[in-house]
Amino acid sequence: MELALTILLFVALVATALTIALVRRLFAVVMLSGVFSLLSALLFVLMDAVDVAFTEAAVGAGISSVLMLGTIALTARSEKRPERYSLVPLAVVLLTGGVLIYGTLDMPNFGAADAPVQLHVGPDYIRKTPEDIDVPNIVTAVLASYRGFDTLGEVTVVFTAGLGVVLLISGLGRRIRRRREGAD
């Protein structure tokens, strides 16, 4: 059942991606990319990567749709038809995809218990978190304490990015310019 659902979702994902490539009206493209994000978030939920699915839904379907709509409001509303089609990008994409798939052949199976990632530091965290940190949730302990500096850096980056976006779309420069014109 899980496998069937995964295959169905992947088929829907590919259909959405092909439509995004074909549609010329950018508004439809934004809506379809929202659907693409929701579908991939569903796939992440099926793979038990719930936190990744959270991020995908919030960023992909939420914020980036809004930002792309803002971009459409500032620029054009439909894509220009290319004058000639080139096969080079397709070849590059196929080559990259092939290399990536070839790279996964040597990787351990999905969810394998003897994968290196499960053997190295994970057991230590699970064993030592109750005495080191005394927090019931091990993921929280790893993020907020073992990797505290890393998380601090991430929060700084996200805060800076958010500040930049707010400054860009708040229209502060426009308002200042208008006030200056009004004063003149």
Binding site: G34, L38, A41, F54, A57, A58, A61, G62, S65, V66, L69, G70, A73, L74, I169, S170, G171
Partner: peptide, 23 residues
């Protein structure tokens, strides 16, 4: 959480329709 995101997204899209801008 998805229901909340969906709501905010739809509000943003409709606001874009109404005002042609998001700022």
């Amino acid at each position: 959480l998805y229901a909340l995101i969906n709501f905010v997204g739809t509000i943003a899209v409709l606001k874009f329709f109404r005002y042609r801008r998001l700022g």
